[in-house]
Simulated assay, not measured.
Amino acid sequence: MGYLEVSDLPAGYGENVLMLLVQSSTVLFAYWEISSAAQEFLRGKNLILRLASVANGFAVPRMVVSPSFYTGDWYFRGVNPGERYRAELGWFENGEFYPLLCSEVVDVPPDKTWRWVPVRQGRGQGAEGVSFVEAVRAIGVSSGSLSRH
């Protein structure tokens, strides 16, 4: 069985896609691909990537950047924990924003400071600590969303 070489991977797949991912409670990562046809359409326009907070059915722009077509990704730092966001890729014309692509809405987790509490093994009364299962229940994460590395 042969190995896939990096040179065997295509530079792109000819699709228009914009994805927004949560990296942490204060950082979001956006990446995109713009097809050659869309790049041709956008020629001469200033590409805009903006991050909008989403609440009550409304999207309010919070951050705006002007990456090049070829950047392909961007980190939005300093987002508010516990809020919902979406990314929009497009251009401004006559003071209006025209979105070409919009990402799905992502939920940023609340910012929490965690402290590891080891489980103390003991017999009878006085055994203290918290088990992994209890910790998972306390923070509301289902075991199906935990991955093993």
Rank of each mutant, 00 (worst) to 15 (best):
V60G: 01
S36A: 12
L21P: 00
Y70S: 12
T113W: 06
V64F: 07
I139G: 02
P10K: 09
K45N: 13
L4E: 14
V105R: 03
A59E: 05
V17C: 08
R43I: 05
D73K: 15
W74Y: 15
F92Q: 06
D111R: 15
A55G: 07
R84S: 08
S142T: 15
G12L: 03
Y98T: 13
R77D: 12
A52I: 01
Y3W: 08
E93S: 12
R123T: 08
F69C: 11
L89R: 02
M63H: 03
W114M: 04
Q23A: 08
V79P: 01
G72Q: 04
S68H: 09
I139A: 04
S24N: 14
E5G: 14
R148Q: 12
E134C: 05
V106M: 04
L89G: 00
E33A: 07
Y3L: 13
E83Q: 03
R62Y: 03
M1Y: 10
G140Y: 06
A135L: 14
V64E: 15
K112T: 10
L100C: 14
G124T: 07
N80M: 06
P109I: 03
E33D: 14
A59K: 02
E128G: 13
V108M: 04
Y13D: 09
V6L: 15
F97T: 05
V108N: 01
V105W: 00
Q125V: 07
Q39I: 06
N56E: 13
N46Q: 13
G2T: 15
S147W: 06
R43G: 07
A37P: 05
V108C: 04
G12F: 04
P109Q: 07
P10C: 12
P61G: 01
R77Y: 10
R50I: 01
L18H: 00
E15I: 14
A11G: 14
Q23W: 00
G57D: 07
E83P: 01
G12W: 01
V106P: 00
F76Y: 07
S143H: 14
T71A: 13
F41A: 04
P109R: 05
L51N: 01
R62T: 02
L101A: 05
V108A: 01
C102N: 10
V65D: 02
G140S: 05
E5A: 15
S53R: 15
R77C: 11
L100H: 13
C102A: 14
M19H: 08
Y85S: 10
P118C: 10
A135M: 09
I48W: 00
G124F: 08
D8C: 06
Q39V: 05
I48C: 06
S103G: 12
V108P: 00
L9P: 00
L51D: 02
P118E: 14
S103Y: 03
